[in-house]
């Protein structure tokens, strides 16, 4: 007689291996990025009011150590997400020359790290100029 047994999937699967943990970490970075976006929207809303009082209070909030801390976390999260994304580029867009695959590291640099560094460098140059 048949009576197939349905096994529950381990509820703690995301803790089980390093790969699963790193995956969860990558997914969680989206929370930080979403939080930062909310902050940005609020910032734009305040700026949109156009009065100096709102701008002053904005600056003081931004300079607060808690704010700087949260921004730092958001920056790290964004950087981490970007790095995982760049590392996955060769998976998404493999390239071949004839029969041979272009090495993953070349694709990651050409499609990800290279442009990233260039743009960051430009922004740095534009800000510090």
């Amino acid at each position: 007689m048949r009576k197939p047994l349905v096994q529950p999937y381990p509820k703690d699967w995301f803790l089980r291996t390093r790969a699963y943990r790193l995956f969860m970490l990558r997914e969680l970075t989206s929370v930080c990025i979403a939080g930062y976006l909310v902050f940005m929207l609020w910032w734009l809303y305040q700026l949109g009011k156009g009065d100096t009082e709102s701008f002053r209070s904005l600056l003081s909030i931004a300079k607060h150590p808690v704010s700087i801390g949260l921004h730092t976390i958001a920056l790290i999260a964004a950087a981490w997400h970007s790095i995982t994304w760049f590392n996955l580029t060769p998976l998404v867009m493999p390239m071949r020359i004839g029969e041979d695959r272009v090495p993953n590291v070349v694709i990651a640099i050409a499609m990800g790290y290279g442009p990233w560094l260039a743009v960051s460098g430009f922004i740095l140059w534009a800000t510090l100029r």
Partner: peptide, 9 residues
């Protein structure tokens, strides 16, 4: 697929 990537591993 949310790209866990373990299938490939």
């Amino acid at each position: 697929c949310a790209l866990v990537g373990e299938c490939t591993a």
